[in-house]
Design a protein around this nucleic acid. Structure first.
Length: 246
DNA sequence: CAGATTTGACCCGC
DNA sequence: GCGGGTCAAATCTG
């Protein structure tokens, strides 16, 4: 089962009660006090578990240190078709400003320049024992050294450079599919929650960018959004290449 | 009234 | 036995 974790910063307007909306409809099925944690952990599963046998699940837990940060653990991939009108946020995160929830991590040493250039910033890949088809190695974009608690992290810095991943990003053709198909493998490897194989669903999955690495030179602009959307392989990584290339 | 949430009980692995 | 994850009955909400 694919698993990945996202650190989510709830901004002020979302408020503390702010539930981080990720475009899926979840149904809460439990809550537990966790040993040594100040806040309980909530358990959600996909609303369409029964209807469509969707086994996606997530756990949400407020961070001890910073109550405005929640850690969202996802388990399993959505196989369901969400009723788009309501479940999928109509204006997904593709907009300019940070979504109301943002993946974060700020307590790391700020990446140095070469770090940036070699992608060592924030690429945090956690590939679980991948069964081939429905499992993509998943990652969360965030500053380096997120989630040290499990050692399954890999950095793909060099791989990315060698792979044309860079090219993919520095020339984001608007047409999408062709350049995407070129590096489909890589995308599959590096894109977060994608569901490449939901052709007609047109569902859009988005992972908000690392942004708010506020103290790093990367700033928020580098990856304003990393979205993968409808139309099969229409990968739309809005990405400020210029900044990135420095 | 249907679907979601709450919450203690239950289950299971360590 | 304990801690974490899930179940399910009661309750809430629109």
């Amino acid at each position: 089962m694919p698993r990945w974790t996202e650190q989510v910063q709830l901004n002020s307007e979302a408020g503390l009660e702010g539930h981080h909306e990720d475009g899926y409809s979840w149904r809460k099925y439990g809550q537990k006090e966790i040993l040594g944690a100040r806040f309980p952990r909530a358990y959600y599963r996909c609303t369409h578990r029964n209807a469509q046998g969707c086994l996606a699940t997530k756990q949400v837990q407020r961070s001890d240190q910073d109550p405005t940060v929640v850690e969202v653990k996802y388990r399993g991939r959505h196989t369901c078709i969400q009723a788009r009108s309501s479940a999928i946020s109509p204006d997904p995160i593709i907009k300019e400003e940070p979504p109301k929830a943002t993946a974060i991590r700020q307590e790391q040493p700020k990446p140095s320049l070469d770090t940036l250039l070699s992608f060592k910033w924030g690429l945090n890949v956690k590939a679980e024992n991948a069964r081939q088809d429905d499992v993509f190695p998943l990652f969360t974009f965030s500053s380096p050294a997120v989630e040290t608690e499990n050692g399954e992290r890999d950095y793909f810095a060099d791989a990315l450079m060698d792979d044309g991943f860079m090219d993919t990003f520095s020339s984001p053709a608007t047409s999408g599919s062709n350049y995407f198909s070129l590096s489909l493998d890589h995308m599959a490897n590096f894109c977060p929650p994608i569901s490449v194989q939901t052709p007609e669903s047109g569902l859009t999955e988005i992972v908000s960018a690392p942004t708010s690495v506020t103290n790093s030179p990367m700033g928020d602009a580098a990856f304003s959004a990393f979205s993968l959307g409808k139309d099969d392989f229409n990968l739309d990584c809005s990405f400020d290449g210029s900044e990135f290339l420095l």
